[in-house]
Amino acid sequence: MSVETAGTALARPIADRIAWALRDGLVLTKRNLLRYVRIPTLLVFSTVQPVMFVLLFRYVFGGSITGLPPGARSYVNYLLPGIFVQTAIFGATQTGVGLAEDLASGIVDRFKSLPTSRSAVLAGRTTADLFRNLFVVLLMTLVGYLVGFRFQDGVVKAILGISLAVLVGFAFSWISAAIGLAIKSLEAVQAASFVWIFPITFASSAFVPLAGMPGWLQAWARNNPVTIWANTLRAFTLGGAYVASTGDSLLALILKSGAWIALILAVFVPVSIRVYRKT
């Protein structure tokens, strides 16, 4: 570090830099969201699959799933929280795809040549994807309500549950961003995402209770953060009887879920920004 660097940094105080980073991030969030306004079919396509999953799991598997925890009452009540988490994670893969697209189109070069905050391009993308995920989860809730799903424990916890799903998606967006920026090729990014996303979402309690899985898989699934998030979301939607059956308190579940999200962000926000700077 040279003397000049220190001088420049002092000339632009930290608070100022953060304020600009936020404003730049908002400008770019708006840019990324306008894409869905201009091409509404994009939004349709990102909702078709989750909605189909809700319906398929509800009607195809619903009758065969046994050993539901107390409070669930029916499979659809068990399923929806899990599928919120799964959808948010799948949706997050679009972050990497979008960034790879931006790299290929040359617009990232423009952003980098501007006095724009370095983190804003990534933050603008992950934030826009957070809003898209929120929209998708709300739509799934609506579809869920049509096929028998009900929040069991009030509006506040329903909101907390949906917020959790969206936050999980946000954390995964940063993983996806690092992958998208590192791999660059659009098709490869898409293919690469599903290699790691399928095992972690399906080998969890997202769709079925762990009891039916073989022992070795249970060991993995029990420690899979997706299980922790799905169970925490169920604690919000299914109520006290369910929480009691998990052997944890609601607070403990929230803390564990939050710790995993914080861990992912703590690792992948700096990693993504680093990869972005070097790209």
């Binding site: 600009w20 400008v27 770019l28 189109s105 040359g106 070069d109 423009r110």
Partner: peptide, 26 residues
């Protein structure tokens, strides 16, 4: 800087593209 590829966002209008860049110039 204007590079070899037309680095504009195809989904934004011409005006929105320029306004965005202006905002990113602070």
């Amino acid at each position: 800087l204007a590079g070899q590829a037309a680095a504009v966002d195809p989904n934004l209008t011409g005006f929105e593209n320029l306004e965005m860049v202006g905002r990113l110039y602070h």
